[in-house]
């Protein structure tokens, strides 16, 4: 019997959905083994159809995207109820992702930036989206935008995580194969990735580190054999789970951390900060300040994908 599967996007960019398609000819294998009953980006299938299903009827649901409005959350609860296995797919569902960086701002600031202040916008009246509106007696309702972006597991119980922005397509297939083989790891595991950091699979040579300067990728032609961090590029490889196949690093681009921290590390960004602080070459306070000031936007650089899952979670309001 075929597995019943669903794929949903919360607050995401659609990249994870594309990654599912990126499995190329293996999509045939997917089609052979499972019925995709629900996939809003690709199939016309309504929420009410899901509501009509039995509890636990989905064998597996892949939820990508973060939770940042009432619709994301409502469907997360619905799908949880209707599925046996709930998987957080991709960095947004796993850690809040890039979208989680909204937590460094207030909801009001964000709306003002997008709908009033942005360079390409003309909005002299300062009109902002409303959750509820009546026009000619017809009520119009939009999902409510939350002030804080959440990870999927901050809203519902999650069985497994497939990390990445986007996840490596083969890893998605592997996860599906694991479900139909009934070969699942302990609940709460990160699947489709390794248990060590990216440095373990990274083929560059590594020495004892002493950082003397930070550079941006545009400012340097890197040595393809040497550790990027040792070349002054802020590579998050040391704090990031392996499994992506070093896609960025092999292209001379430092790791941005999308696969998230290792098991037992509560805060990827702070962990990197702590590690960096340990290997700065200067020992005098002023020289340290000078070096640190070379890191562009350290808060967002270090927490690019993991703000919502970090210890602080958001800016203080």
């Amino acid at each position: 019997m075929k597995l019943k599967a669903g794929i949903y996007w919360g607050a995401g960019c659609g990249g994870c959905d594309v990654a599912v398609l990126d499995v190329h000819e293996k999509i045939l294998l997917v089609a052979e083994k499972m019925d995709l009953l629900f996939w809003p980006i690709a199939l016309d299938f309504k929420y009410d159809d899901v509501r009509a299903m039995d509890d636990g009827e989905f064998d597996i649901v892949l939820y990508n995207g973060a939770v940042r409005n009432s619709e994301n959350e409502e469907i997360a609860h619905l799908l949880r109820q209707k599925s046996k296995v709930m998987v957080a797919l991709g960095a947004c569902a796993h850690l809040g992702g890039l979208i989680g960086m909204a937590n460094f701002h207030t909801k009001e600031d964000l709306l003002k930036r997008v709908y009033v202040d942005s360079e390409s916008t003309v909005n002299e009246e300062g009109t902002l989206p409303q959750e509820y509106w009546e026009e000619a007696g017809i009520p119009l309702e939009l999902p409510r935008l939350y002030g804080t972006v959440k990870t999927l597991d901050q809203v519902v119980d999650v069985d497994y995580y497939i990390p990445g922005c986007p996840p490596v397509p083969e890893q998605i297939v592997n996860a599906l194969v694991a479900v139909w083989d009934g070969n699942l790891p302990p609940k709460g595991s990160v699947i489709g990735a390794g248990s060590r950091t990216l440095c373990d699979e990274c083929s560059r040579t590594k020495e004892e580190k002493e950082i003397t300067e930070f550079k941006r990728t545009s400012e340097v032609i890197t040595d393809p054999e040497k550790c990027l961090l040792e070349q002054g590029l802020l590579c998050l490889g040391p704090v990031t789970r392996e499994g992506c196949g070093s896609r960025c690093i092999n292209s001379n681009v430092p790791c941005r951390g999308c696969y998230g921290p290792l098991e037992g590390v509560p805060d990827q960004g702070i962990r990197m900060l702590s590690a960096l602080a340990s290997v700065l070459e200067p020992k005098e306070e002023e020289a340290i300040d000078e070096l640190i000031s070379q890191i562009p936007d350290p808060l967002r650089t270090l927490h690019r994908f993991s703000v919502a899952a970090s210890i602080l979670r958001r800016k203080k309001i």
């Binding site: 248990s195 060590r196 440095c199 290997v279």
Partner: peptide, 10 residues
């Protein structure tokens, strides 16, 4: 868990 990044060595 150690990836051998050598960051701690010094």
């Amino acid at each position: 868990k150690c990836s051998g990044c050598k960051l701690c060595n010094t």
